[in-house]
Design a protein around this nucleic acid. Sequence first.
DNA 1: CAAAAATCTTAATACAATCTTGATAACCCC
DNA 2: GGGGTTATCAAGATTGTATTAAGATTTTTG
Lengths: 224, 224
Amino acid sequence: MTLQALIIEDDLAVQSFLQTLLQSQNFHLQSTGSGQTGLQILSSQTFDLVLLDLGLADLDGQQVLQQLRQWTAVPVIVISARGKEQDKIQALDAGANDYITKPFSAGELLARIRAALRQHQGTVQTLQFGNVLIDPVQRQISKGGVPLHLTKTEYDILMLLLRHAGNVLTHNQILRQVWGEMYQGRPEYVRVHVATLRQKIEDNPATPQFIKTEAGVGYRFNSQ
Amino acid sequence: MTLQALIIEDDLAVQSFLQTLLQSQNFHLQSTGSGQTGLQILSSQTFDLVLLDLGLADLDGQQVLQQLRQWTAVPVIVISARGKEQDKIQALDAGANDYITKPFSAGELLARIRAALRQHQGTVQTLQFGNVLIDPVQRQISKGGVPLHLTKTEYDILMLLLRHAGNVLTHNQILRQVWGEMYQGRPEYVRVHVATLRQKIEDNPATPQFIKTEAGVGYRFNSQ
DNA sequence: CAAAAATCTTAATACAATCTTGATAACCCC
DNA sequence: GGGGTTATCAAGATTGTATTAAGATTTTTG
């Protein structure tokens, strides 16, 4: 499983440095120099990590942070040329997970990224729910001790929902991550496969306990 | 609710500085200058936060970190005089949540503590009014601890009003943001959905405390 | 390489949630 | 009290969802 990262940074030199660095760690990347665009991307896709420069041209990084925290808990590491105490406090209180000042070393940034991912996954990711057990290494799932077979699509949907357990994922977010960009606007794909998935993992597929429907929005994995 | 913090720091001047700082934030404190003792305390009590100096006399802070991470996920912020990259990477990879180098400012430390606590609790920015709690990240609402279900339209209206809490939003402003441009001049849409929303979130829907009507203008969310 | 199996796509249907609409009653300010 | 505004309700319309199955496609197997 490759992790998705978004880089919001308008200094192209730094952007390309970050890209090289993260690519070497097998991140799947997207980059933008604009805060507005960054927010748009974040609202339509899910990410495992965001690197955010505070000094953007169009929109203050601080505002980007405040906005995105209204709907996502994705780990955000703020990168900034400003080392002033007030900037750090503001960013951290606006929901940044960490704050690192330019110039920084590649090793330290990577270590802080690992720490942020670890903390985030520790709180969210569960590989067990009800009597269903998931072994992500073996890609193996069992229910009540009985192994079950999920197709690739079903497995991808389940892991995506699980990775964002508790949150609603829109049809388009699911489509983008599981099928790809060009499937936007085809919610019926998601419905059919969520139905088959429920048949396999729910005790009573007609009244699902785990994969909940949010009418008009999408699906949510119920972490309770 | 007072939070429990443990300070492991052998420089008494720094220790007393940290104590004063955390006490001012209503932390309940315990301190030790020894790594061994620190581990013992941690094994017999639960804490919400650990501040750990790397440069201890008896046991390397690094070792303390490795040991305690074998059984607890308590947020640990490492405080160190060593600013070397290798030290930071080691500590973060050994399970530190954050790493801050002396000298540091009180404000920054407190902000990093808040960030660490927030991440650990999986806590997101929750909005609250009366006994209604909103988790905008999970798109989840509860009233008096009981989860309640809002339709997409109701949720959108509520978030819009909340975003502009205290200000009046005209019918047309609400229509534009929730329904779209072509619904201008249909205040009855807003009325019906505000009514159902009040039924769900107000203690007494007939005399609303939160969503106030501004006759002839629109609605206002009462932030008091 | 061809046959078989598995999986996905698509469309159709039944069903459920939500919204729209209009009617009626209540409110409120002059 | 009257005109304008608002609240409430519920039936009907609309939109969104679950489920099924047939055919298309891909993958696996012999």
